[in-house]
Nucleic acid binder design. Structure first.
Length: 565
DNA sequence: GCCGTTTTCGGCCCGACTGTTTTCAGTCG
């Protein structure tokens, strides 16, 4: 708003670093002062001093002075589609608009159309923007919208002017929540594709309808963007449209250092000719592989493109060899109609086999999770016998599949378990998890988990942080202590693939890896069609840079069991 | 405000679409 383009970006970058940094800035400051903060990338003297001022006094004077100058809800107003800093400044100066409520009132009174550089259309757009803001869902959980997106993808692929089409953006990176859907298409008749796209029957609003780029909102509130490029630019466009933005910017900076230029159409080398001055010659862009190769770094999988060290790793040929989507041979957390699952042990096993697995562990809930009808020792022993029987039937019927016995044991507030060690010792796979008493202090929660891991019969901690995406915060845990204990006790940590959990999440997985911890990727299936969830877990593992060897259920049942306590 | 195997000063990613404009600024991704 003050015509300063770069300083705000520097602060924005610093704030992103702060929110994703594994250690708390306050602790870093207390240990090493402002100097230690300045060692963090994107934190220089200026911002380190601001952080210091904030830690010491609880406020930042410059920020408060700016707030006085513009007593305006900038974050709220920019959330209205089409409203940016310049518009906010004008609206404040001319109409004293401070927040979205003021904006709505002014638009309703027809006051906006009269201001310089605003017209009737701007006013309508603001109206619409506010309406959509009220309906806005924020970010969608990937698992909730992926089926819808795949149907949309199929529909668009069937359009005859579409030669090629792919869903890019955060969906291709398998980010756990999705802000909008980015679709890339190749077509020789982009206009026809655009017309089909904005005319789809589920479209609620058209934000933009251009020759090669359009944007709409669907009836379910999801924003979808499409972009059409020529075939020779497909790789560059795919890279550009997959993001993340930070990853793209970093790639462009590599190009610039070489004196080249990277955009969504390709990688270009400058050619000087006397007659025409500077010209750009395309040197890569048909495929992503070609693009990375020309930039001089190894190909980076979409799940890793967050500018979180992957470019450095690619430059040094130190990228991990990520676990693949077909690498799982078993599933170590599944539920049946013995507790809160929908289907029988046999049905679940056959569905797992159908999904390409060789074995599953049946891990129904235990007795203190009363609402699920959790098992006590007696019921567990009965289930063990039943599983043995089904395995024998399978053998007799020539069905090559193994069912392992197990449980999802409930961890009590003090870290004790609700099943005796004697019975736990009989199980093939004993997982433990927190389901209640979520309000304990970080120290108590951490102690609780540590105690469960120290039990020699507990092989795996299921969904460690107990978060529900978009609904429930992760437990406040001292992860360093937990990861250390997991390593020492040989406890496996689960990557729960249930789409609303995805727990551990990507950043925690990367952190856990540093301690040498092994993982299990489980569906947490409560019905026989839920083995499809495993791909979300694998994606999350890939986002955490996990290799096949670090996941115990990529092994055969025999090999996997040897990895347990 | 940050940063530096081209620089401690002078850069900072790049292009499409829209609206209000007669050539472009603002917004978005």
């Amino acid at each position: 708003m003050q015509d300063e383009p770069f300083r705000p970006r520097a602060y924005e970058r610093a704030s992103e670093i702060a929110s994703s940094h594994s250690a708390d800035f306050r602790e870093i400051y207390e240990k090493g002062g402002a100097k230690a903060l300045m060692e963090i990338p994107s934190i220089g003297r200026g911002i380190a001093e601001k952080i210091e001022e904030y830690i010491k006094t609880g406020r930042i004077r410059e920020y408060e002075a700016l707030k006085k100058k513009y007593p305006v809800d900038i974050a709220g107003l920019t959330a209205v589609e089409g409203i940016g800093p310049k518009a906010i400044k004008t609206l404040w100066q001319k109409l004293k608009i401070q927040n979205v409520a003021d904006l709505e009132k002014a638009a309703r009174a027809g006051k906006i159309a009269g201001i310089a550089r605003f017209g009737k259309k701007s006013e309508d757009k603001i109206f619409k923007g506010i309406e959509f803001l009220k309906l806005s869902h924020g970010r969608f959980r990937l698992g909730d919208i992926l089926p819808y997106v795949r149907a949309l993808e199929l529909e668009l692929k069937s359009v005859k002017e579409v030669d090629e089409l792919v869903v890019a953006g955060s969906i291709r990176r398998w980010k756990e929540t999705v802000g909008d859907v980015d679709i890339l298409a190749v077509s020789r008749k982009p206009k026809a594709v655009m017309e089909y796209f904005v005319g789809m029957k589920d479209v609620a609003n058209v934000y933009a309808h251009g020759e090669t780029k359009s944007a709409v909102k669907m009836n379910n509130g999801l924003d979808v963007d499409i972009r059409v490029v020529p075939r020779e630019s497909f790789g560059a466009a795919l890279n550009y449209f997959t993001g993340s933005k930070d990853h793209n910017v970093a790639l462009r900076e590599i190009a610039i250092k070489k004196g080249w230029k990277l955009n969504e159409y390709g990688l270009y080398k400058s050619q000087k000719s006397k007659a025409e001055g500077q010209k750009w010659k395309m040197i890569a862009g048909r495929t992503e592989d070609e693009l990375y190769e020309k930039l001089g770094i190894a190909y980076i999988e979409p799940e890793m493109r967050e500018n979180a060290g992957e470019i450095e790793a690619a430059r040094n040929n130190q990228l991990p060899n990520l676990i693949g989507y077909g690498d799982l041979r078993g599933d170590l957390q599944t539920h049946t109609d013995w507790t809160d699952g929908k289907h029988s042990i046999r049905e679940m096993a056959l569905a797992a086999k159908e999904a390409g697995l060789e074995y599953i562990a049946i891990t129904d809930h235990t007795k203190t999770l009363a609402m699920t009808g959790g098992s006590d020792e007696k019921k567990l022993l009965k289930q063990i016998a039943e599983i043995k029987k089904i395995n024998q039937e399978f053998e007799a019927e020539g069905i090559k599949f193994r069912i392992l016995t197990g449980a999802e044991v409930n961890i009590m507030p003090d870290g004790k378990l609700d099943i005796t060690d004697e019975v736990l010792a009989d199980l093939d796979v004993a997982g433990a998890a927190i389901h209640m008493n979520l309000k304990l202090s970080p120290a108590e929660q951490t102690k609780r988990i540590v105690r469960a891991m120290e039990n020699p019969n507990i092989d795996i901690i299921f969904h460690l942080t107990d978060r529900i995406i978009n609904r429930r915060e992760a437990l406040p845990l001292d992860l360093e202590t937990i990861f250390k204990t997991a390593k020492i006790t040989g406890t496996i940590l689960e990557i729960d693939a249930y789409p609303e959990r995805l727990d551990l999440k990507d950043e925690h997985i990367r952190e856990a890896k540093k301690f040498g911890i092994k993982f299990a990727i489980d569906s947490d299936a409560h019905a026989k069609d839920q083995f499809r969830f495993l791909e979300f877990g694998i994606a999350q593992a890939r986002r955490g840079w996990v290799e096949k060897g670090e996941v115990i259920n990529t092994r055969s049942a025999e090999g996997m069991l040897k990895m347990l306590k």
